[in-house]
Design a protein around this nucleic acid. Sequence first.
DNA 1: TTCTCATATAGGATTAAACATCTATGTCTT
DNA 2: AAGACATAGATGTTTAATCCTATATGAGAA
Lengths: 209, 209
Amino acid sequence: MSLEHAILGFLNYGPLSGYDLKKVFDTSVQHFWSADQSQIYRTLARMAENGWTRVETVPQENRPDRKVYHITDEGRAELRRWLTTPLPPEENRSAPLVQVFFAGQLSDEEVLHIFKPAAEQMRQVLQIYGQVPVIFEEHIRREYAHKVHSPRDFFFWMLTLECGVVNARAMLSWMESVIERIENRDYTISKELIPNLKELKDEDYDTER
Amino acid sequence: MSLEHAILGFLNYGPLSGYDLKKVFDTSVQHFWSADQSQIYRTLARMAENGWTRVETVPQENRPDRKVYHITDEGRAELRRWLTTPLPPEENRSAPLVQVFFAGQLSDEEVLHIFKPAAEQMRQVLQIYGQVPVIFEEHIRREYAHKVHSPRDFFFWMLTLECGVVNARAMLSWMESVIERIENRDYTISKELIPNLKELKDEDYDTER
DNA sequence: TTCTCATATAGGATTAAACATCTATGTCTT
DNA sequence: AAGACATAGATGTTTAATCCTATATGAGAA
C-alpha cells in the first residue's frame, strides 16, 4: 500500500495530525492520490502500532485532543526502503475502456454520446491541472513555507503534475481522433500506432448475425 | 463495478462458463482489465441471483459440471444502460507518482535508479502491446471466429489497444525527458506543459535544513 | 435563530479484489 | 513413476477503500 508511504513522506517533512494530513493530501497530491479521511486515521493508527510513527497527544480546550504523529527512525528507514525500490508494473483497470471494447454493440450516435463527454471531461481535467500550481504555491507560501526545502523538492512535486498533463493531453488527442473517425464512418486503426495488425478479410467474419 | 458489465458484454456474444470467461479475459482485455478467477466465479453467482444471467448446468463425465451462463433480457438491458451511460471521471491512484513526489528526499543517482527501470518497463509494455493483435487474431481465428461480428466490432477492440499505446508512449517520452533533465542537473519544469508556474525565489525556501 | 463551516477523531457496514488453498481427473512429458 | 499442465469449480481470509454516521464545539453568516 502506498498510502502508508505517502504519509511517511509527509511526516518526514514534519509532524502532522490526521486532520492536517487530510488537508495536505487534498491540496498537493489529490491529482494522483486521493485519500479518504477515515482511511487516513485508520492507517495512522496502524502505523503507530507498527512503530513507524510516534503519537504525541496535544490536549486542547473544548475540542478533541490533537494526535500529532511523528515519524520514527524505523519509519524513516521504511520510507527510504520503499522510495528506492522500483515498483512492479501497475495494471491499470479502466472502466471507460471496457465501454469502448463493447461499443460495437452500440450505434455510432451512442458511441459519440460516450466519447464526447469523455473528451470534455479531459479538457476540464487539463484546466484543473492548470490551476493546481497556483493553489499549491499559495498553500506553500502561507502554511507550509517552512516545509519547502529546496528548488529540487519543488521540481519533483511539479513533475507529478507534468506527468498528469502529458497523460491527459495524450488521452484527449486520442479521443478526438476517435470522434473524428467515427463521424467520418472511417473504422480504421492507426497503422502508426498498431503496426502488427493484419487486416481481417470479410470471410473472417460471421455475417449471419 | 465494471467486472459485471464486462462479463455481460462477453455473454452478449454467446454463453460462456466461468472457466471460459477467465480465458477470454486473459486473451483479450487483460491490457486494461485483469480479472481474478475466484472473482469471476463469485460475480457470476451474484449476477445469476440478480437475474442478469441464467445458469445452464452441463454435466460432464469425470469432471465437475460445466456451469454455462446465458445473458437474460434484464442482463441485456443492464448492459445497454451501462454502455450508454457516461462514466464519472476516474481518479487514478499512481504509486509511482507517490515515489516521484517524494523523490526530493533521494539523491540524483537513487532517483535515476527508479526512473530507468520504469522507462525500461514501459518499453516492454509497448513490446507486449505490439504482440497483442497477433495473439488476439490467432485466438479469433481459432476458437472465437463465430463471435467476431463485424469489422466495426473489431475496430473498437483495437481502439482499446491504440489507447494503451498512446498512453505508454506518452509516459515513456515523459520519463525519458525526466531522466535527461536529472542527468544534466537541470531541475526545470516544462513551461509548455505547466504554463501557470511562477518561479519560487530563493527567499521562499527554508535553507536552514 | 438557525445553518453552515471549520476543527478534530473515530467506528460500523459494505465492497472489490487479491491470495491461497481445495476438490477431482485426464493427458502428456520426463 | 512422478510431475506438470489443462479442465472445471469453489471457499476462506485478508486488504484497501468508500460511505455513512457520531461526537464535540466555536465562529460567522443569512
